[in-house]
Design a binder for these strands. Structure first.
Lengths: 181, 181
DNA sequence: ACCTGAACACCGTTCAAGT
DNA sequence: ACCTGAACACCGTTCAAGT
């Protein structure tokens, strides 16, 4: 939905969507029962953009590749992370979760450890996409220097200091490091 | 804001908020320039509920305590996780981020590793709160059994099988485990 | 300094009616 | 089966005006 990418979730209007489809706004309600339905469909749809590559010999590489594309897809559609939660149950999402979980299984993870790692990875990716999608127009973060010594020394809020991509990849590696072979 | 807790972010209306304050809706615009301002204020405000306990001898315990309360606060106000991203820069949030980062410093983390771990932890907490806040009314997840073998075998979508709290704590421990003393 | 009232340009959604 | 038109009950926000 290019409408969402341009105007954000606040700018998506049933009337606007209808117009882009050359229909009346009320016509949409034959196909869909509520505006939330539209958002649910759009959300699940973008996960179709996340490729699930043929599983290779190194399961860690499969996991990394999947989760990088997962984050990329959300960053390409910055409205998406905030919508997550409701229908993390669309078919596209489920297929990718299955892929992730089976890769972890190949790594030897089972039971509690499998569940913990799946959640940890998924929630990390979602959290990362959510925070990164909205930062960017950051013009705040000034004179923080005085009040928060450790924070400003670490450059946590300085986008020039650390790159989002390397922090994400390193986080992924940290999670994957302590795991079974 | 009990209004938000009861009606969610969609149910918070300038008119409704005004009424609860015994004022006209238009009066609000003298104190605030836009509705988004109200949400930003409300969001930062709930992080004031997250206690920063006196740092103890075990830095890991400080981190765990902070992040558990952090997640708890967001789950008490389920509308909050989806709003994160814009002003993760309010004073309450900044104070907690500073606390977290200084605890990690006491643990011996510096530079890249400090930045990576801070992000990893923060994004995990946010992602967890976001996904957990909206699930709960899950009445989907049926006949998934057939199509996604690993997924359904793991009980990933079965709330009776794994408890959110233990998965969260275990995730936290997994992140903290591989780190400096 | 702080609030009201009227008004504007929108919303999502329902429903009878058309083809 | 699919769409239109009119209508309802709301929205956020602006602005002149009051105290």
């Amino acid at each position: 939905m290019p409408l969402l990418d341009r105007h954000g979730v606040a700018g998506l209007t049933m009337r606007r969507l209808a117009e882009s489809l050359d229909v009346t706004a009320t016509a949409l309600y034959w196909h869909v029962t509520t505006k939330e339905d539209v958002l649910d469909l759009a959300l699940d749809h973008i996960f179709g953009e996340v490729p699930m590559r043929e599983p290779g010999p190194e399961w860690r590489d499969d996991v990394r590749a999947l989760l990088r594309s997962w984050r990329d897809a959300m960053l390409r559609h910055p409205w998406s992370p905030a919508l997550i939660g409701r229908p993390v149950l669309g078919p596209e999402v489920l297929a990718r979760t299955e892929y992730l979980q089976s890769a972890l299984s190949r790594g030897g993870l089972t039971d509690l450890e499998l569940a913990v790692t799946t959640r940890l990875l998924a929630n990390f990716v979602i959290g990362a996409a959510l925070t990164e999608a909205s930062r960017g127009d950051g013009d705040a973060r000034r004179h923080i220097t005085a009040d928060y010594p450790t924070l400003s020394a670490s450059g946590h809020l300085d986008p020039a200091r650390w790159n989002d991509d390397v922090l994400f990849d390193a986080g992924l590696d940290a999670i994957l490091a302590g795991r079974q072979r």
